[in-house]
Design a protein around this nucleic acid. Sequence first.
DNA 1: CTGAAAGCGCTAACAC
DNA 2: GTGTTAGCGCTTTCAG
Lengths: 344, 344
Amino acid sequence: MSWAKKKVTIKMVADQANVSKTTISRYLNGKYEFMSEETRERIEKAIEALNYHPNQIARGLKSKKSGTIGMIVADITTPFSSILVKGVNDICLGEGYQLMIANSDEDPRKEEEYIRSMLTRQIEGLVINSTGYNDDLIQQLRNEGIFVTYAERRPLNGQIDTVTIDNEHIIKYVLDKLYGSGFEEVAFFSQTINKNATRQIRKEIFQRMTCERGGDAEALFFQIDQEAFSYDKAIMGYLQENPQRSKAVITGNGVAMLDFLRACRRQNIEIPDQVGLCGFDDWGWTELVGAGISAIAQPTYEIGARAAEILIGRIHSGIDYKDPIEIELKAQFVERGSTQIILK
Amino acid sequence: MSWAKKKVTIKMVADQANVSKTTISRYLNGKYEFMSEETRERIEKAIEALNYHPNQIARGLKSKKSGTIGMIVADITTPFSSILVKGVNDICLGEGYQLMIANSDEDPRKEEEYIRSMLTRQIEGLVINSTGYNDDLIQQLRNEGIFVTYAERRPLNGQIDTVTIDNEHIIKYVLDKLYGSGFEEVAFFSQTINKNATRQIRKEIFQRMTCERGGDAEALFFQIDQEAFSYDKAIMGYLQENPQRSKAVITGNGVAMLDFLRACRRQNIEIPDQVGLCGFDDWGWTELVGAGISAIAQPTYEIGARAAEILIGRIHSGIDYKDPIEIELKAQFVERGSTQIILK
DNA sequence: CTGAAAGCGCTAACAC
DNA sequence: GTGTTAGCGCTTTCAG
């Protein structure tokens, strides 16, 4: 980089201001008590004149504080992830941290690679929307002085700070609502569960509550793999059983909702005439489809923001903890046309 | 962090393997020619035994290579930005770079703050989807040895690498299509332009082509501010002029399309019966709204990927350039029901 | 109030 | 083949 102007260092500022590097360093760290008014001003001028910006990398090497936080999301292309990122990013800006972000693409191997890469780059903490396959490695980070907060997907086991939503409460609310308004069968359509804790938890809650109502918890839960037309098959299968009953579906997240709607369109299934629908995640377009799609609006931004706050709090305190913080934020049901029952 | 295990350093590995730090360093950098087969194995064992991972921060301090790239997007919550991020992220993974990401929120002050913050953290390059207000600062980075690539939004002036789409070509294509199929007036609805180069360019192209067809280039271009019901007013105003003519609208990006559709719904405007619609950006839900929304699918992922490739290429070459690389990728028109003209 | 000196963890001449 | 030495840019004792 021969064409690059030499970067200005603390040494050059020291020379310019006619003091030692130490004093400049003190200045940079706001320890003004240790210098005369006059030197302070001289330093200020020198920094200004040279357009000096301290090298955070060098500072971090000595102080062991990189000032960066890592964040790994499972699929950055979903609005869910990007809003989560925004929440974390905003808090980081306020606290002076930079964000190192990676997209695991739901691939545990990539996830591990990113975690290790970020570790070598001395992140001070990690916010993760985890695939669920690297919980052991993540637990290990604790031993290296790295704090971790799980966002939305909790660890399957392990004592780590977590911010999720109150699935129990909102699923109960929606089931009550749907059955209460006359639907006779409510099914749940989930993406492949794998080790995804959120999907696992929603399944468990849905099946337990369905059971309590005397429903067929097994038959009404559909786990749908990412193959072509698998949603088509599932929805057709569901509607063919007990065709005289009025039915509704809850989809487990925004991506499942989109796939479900596409399948309905291909199969000419009318909503809510033939099947009611309530989805998790309320993204901008839900009101535009048909009579509007009812949805569970997750406080996605807040999940990210709270996770970042907790993480930074831990970093600042710097001490190990025995009791993890576990926060459950409330989700909200937004009612639209897709759950207005059409009586048969 | 009293509870943290002491991090293992190159010194400890050297002691364990009974060689000097230099030799370990050579090993880490793959310079196996400079050591015996036997020491190489000894080092391998020592690293394994101690679970050693080199500190990239320290390496970077000496070598002036942080191994991180910065990326700033204008609004991370739009699918456009997140897909762009994915493109960049994927290339970075392949090339061994970590991504430092920030969301400027279309705020030039935040954008500047992030740029400076990333600079102090020694990013080696920057991919930016810029607000357009910090072009001078960005140009300045070049003097500090930092390469920059603009993604999607080009600099208003300045000689910097850029990846955009071929707006000229696709806008011509869509206008031909719409007028060709019988629409008599085609308007363009854009978000507030400010210094956004893409919006500026689309406006210029649209107006020029409209002019060439003898249309009223001024009246047919709508710049719509982000106030409540401003889309409602614009669309109503457009439809009231020359009501006997069949009309269509092109929206300038995905966000504008969403706002436009919401306004139509509020005003009970039927698409395409009362107005045809073709939007920029083809996100998952377009096919689900009404008879399907026709859209210009931008190669968003490719924009990000190409931008990252170009940037990393520059970093590797390490030399200044006089001629910036300017790439224009092709967008594609996806035809759906919203542009099937209903003859009046 | 201020500075000299010794590192942080790693790399890179330059010797041997 | 391998080690010694001198830093990278900054912080931090420890002396004055």
